[in-house]
């Protein structure tokens, strides 16, 4: 059962921003993550500001430069089924299709998917953990089979999004509007790791709204894919995942990014893998070196060392597959 709150469904962005005058006022896009958090009392709420009445936040359109502009309210289903995205940015369509369940994809939005709260069961549960202002990360010595192996520091959540790694890999940016005016942020810099600030997951201020996601035109020779391993085949977050967006020149990797899900508190760009494959043909030797590199700096917790062979396996698998495209 949800706590009490007031509710407003503004018609314009300006009006919506005006309603975000307190950190207790919460944005409702699809609502799937918000309502779950409210049910668990993960945070408090005074007013819900629904974005569903704002038309300009919807739609997927091609930009003049040949990129893509995705309204923050575009649903995961729309992303997964968009012929434009499927053909030009398959990694994103695949990420969206692998998220949640059909019903949640019909409701959940791309903006919401980027802004969702961590899935740690201590954070979501009735535990006053570090991230919620307490003084203990329960996962550190507790049940941490599903926690991070990279980038953890005092807090060991993993970022739950399947679309965010794709967007980081593709070099996407987000547009943000708020009381202080609009700004543009690369998706890679949108997420805040615990090393920087334990109390937030993104750079979004409470009175700001993520309005659109911008994808650059696909570079020449772009191949992209997303691979996700999970305990069950639907309705589940990644145990380990890898988003590839690589530019090939002939058989050589000329550029691009490798981003992990299920690995770290933020979508984790694996610079280590990128360094190994850049300028190389994806032959067995390179792939094997890349697989080793992916967990080179990993620091597993007591129960999640399986993620090491798992990440090695999917990096190897996905690089082999993308080399053959």
């Amino acid at each position: 059962m949800l706590p009490n709150f007031s509710y407003v469904r503004p018609k314009s962005l300006d009006e919506a921003v005006r309603h975000l005058d307190s950190p207790e006022n919460r944005i409702h896009a699809g609502g799937t993550d918000l309502l779950g958090c409210l049910r668990e009392r993960v945070f408090g709420v005074a007013k819900i500001v629904s974005l569903s009445g704002i038309q300009e936040l919807k739609g997927i359109t091609e930009t003049a430069e040949g990129g893509l502009r995705i309204g923050a309210l575009a649903t995961l289903r729309e992303i997964a089924e968009s012929p434009l995205i499927r053909s030009k940015y398959p990694v994103l369509a695949q990420g969206a299709a692998e998220a949640a369940s059909p019903q949640l994809r019909n409701q959940g939005t791309l903006g919401g998917n980027l802004c969702q709260k961590p899935r740690c069961w201590y954070y979501r549960g009735d535990f006053h953990c570090l991230r919620k202002g307490g003084d203990l990360c329960y996962a550190m010595v507790g049940e941490n089979a599903f926690h991070c192996i990279l980038g953890g520091d005092a807090c060991y959540i993993v970022h739950p999004s399947d679309t965010a790694p794709a967007l980081v890999a593709l070099g996407a940016t987000v547009r943000i509007t708020g009381a202080g005016g609009p700004r543009t942020v690369p998706v890679e810099e949108f997420f805040v790791p615990p090393t920087q600030d334990l109390t937030r997951e993104t750079v979004l201020e409470h009175n700001e709204i993520l309005t659109e996601i911008l994808l650059p035109p696909p570079p020449q020779g772009l191949r992209s894919s997303y691979r996700k391993v999970r305990a069950r085949r639907s309705w589940d977050f990644a145990l380990a995942g890898v988003a590839l967006a690589l530019q090939f020149r002939g058989e050589e990797v000329a550029g691009g990014r490798v981003v992990l899900s299920g690995a770290a508190p933020i979508p984790w760009r694996s610079v280590e893998v990128e360094e190994v494959i850049l300028g190389k043909r994806l032959d067995a030797e390179t792939i094997s070196a890349a697989a080793e590199a992916v967990v080179k700096n990993a620091e597993p917790l007591a129960q999640n060392d399986y993620k090491l062979p798992l990440f090695r396996a999917i990096v190897e698998e996905e690089l082999s597959a993308i080399a053959k495209v």
Partner: peptide, 26 residues
């Protein structure tokens, strides 16, 4: 009532949705 089972599935504008994760006002 957490969007985790689908027993409350209804169609909204022809698309399956969880009624438990949908505010009536919305």
């Amino acid at each position: 009532e957490r969007g985790e089972c689908g027993a409350c599935t209804v169609l909204m504008d022809d698309l399956p949705r969880y009624a438990c994760m949908t505010l009536a006002v919305e």
